[in-house]
């Protein structure tokens, strides 16, 4: 038991990974007649949620939170459909850089508010959320269609291989590169124990600021995937995505006190939520149970992660 516990403390994403594996198996069993081509399609459907979860993760690791990730994803979707495509900008070489730059810009604004101007993260990003939702609604008052072949390609498949898996791999590649530098270590230290980190000379403010920038970058890729999937612009999902994204992060074992967790857990968390939904639909369980199960999973996982952590971080009384 202690070994299991220790393993969870070291690798908190294990819960979500195991759960996702089980759910996947159950999904397969529950749908024996599904065609082989059914499964790659699932990955494409998962992509937007996966990106919301992944993009929410860096700021949480640094001890903050970004409530504006959902709106960021939606805004990037809307900018593509309502601004870039109608203006005749449809080459990937133009669209992708513009969208990514926009994501970096919004993320950096959040980072400056929180890390430099020292606003409480929740309040600053809540305000940014309002602003982004407003801009999104302004650009797309009603849902409107729009897409180009290369964007649709992102959620298609080559043979049985889902292209979406490649796109989801992008943030992981970025993360792997960052892990080779000191950035991730610094971020985890800044989130886990900001005082110790500051005293050791970790540039806490800079690292925290960049965590929001990184979130913005990932969110903008999520916007591409959302566009590819919806082939339209829709501002109405912004605030729902905020909540589900954070739920996936929590489920993935990332501690909201900062300093513990990673992208993989968030992906697994997103996968769990997605698979539950899929399974319940496939088993034609009334959709009404989905929310209850989400909620219980979420509370359970955050309690589990908090109680795993509770014995640590105990400082001497001052």
């Amino acid at each position: 038991m202690t070994g299991f516990r220790a393993a969870l403390v070291r690798r908190p994403y294990l819960i979500a990974v195991v759960l996702a594996a089980i759910l996947l198996a159950v999904n397969v069993v529950a749908m024996p007649s599904a065609a082989a081509s059914y499964w790659p399609g699932l990955i494409a459907n998962l992509a937007p949620l996966a990106f919301v979860a992944i993009a929410s993760t860096p700021s949480v690791l640094g001890g903050g939170i970004d409530l504006s990730i959902g709106p960021q994803v939606v805004l990037s979707n809307i900018v593509i459909v309502m601004v870039l495509l109608p203006a005749g900008i449809d080459s990937p070489w133009a669209v992708i850089p513009i969208v990514l730059a926009l994501g970096i810009l919004i993320g950096t604004i959040n980072g400056v508010l929180v890390a430099l101007l020292r606003f409480p993260a929740m309040i600053a990003t809540l305000c940014v959320m309002f602003v982004l939702i407003g801009i999104a609604q302004r650009l797309a008052p009603q849902p409107a269609g729009g897409s180009t072949p290369w964007i649709e390609f992102l959620t298609s498949r080559a043979g049985l291989f889902p292209i979406a898996a490649l796109v989801i791999a992008v943030p992981f590649a970025v993360w792997l590169v960052l892990r080779r530098t000191s950035f991730v270590r610094n971020l985890l230290a800044a989130g886990g124990d900001p005082i110790a980190a500051t005293s050791a000379g970790v540039p806490v403010s800079a690292v925290r600021l960049l965590s929001y920038t990184l979130g913005g970058l990932f969110a903008s890729i999520g916007g591409l995937m959302l566009t590819s999937l919806l082939r339209s612009a829709d501002a109405s999902q912004a605030s729902t995505l905020v909540l589900i994204g954070l739920a996936a992060v929590a489920l993935g074992g990332t501690a909201f006190t900062g300093g513990r967790g990673g992208l993989l857990g968030s992906l697994a968390g997103a996968l769990c939520i997605f698979l539950i939904q899929n399974l319940l639909t496939a088993l034609s369980v009334p959709a009404v149970w989905i929310n209850v199960i989400y909620g219980l999973l979420l509370v359970g996982s955050v309690v589990l992660s908090a109680s795993l952590l509770s014995q640590k971080n105990v400082r001497q009384p001052v």
Binding site: L246, A247, I293, G295, V299, A306, S307, S310
Partner: peptide, 23 residues
């Protein structure tokens, strides 16, 4: 009791509340 972040706890219980009402 668990020092769990109320943001996430209440987010989860919110899902439960709506879900139960639907059920």
């Amino acid at each position: 009791r668990f020092g769990a972040n109320p943001l996430i706890v209440t987010l989860g219980s919110g899902f439960v509340a709506v879900g139960l009402a639907q059920v």
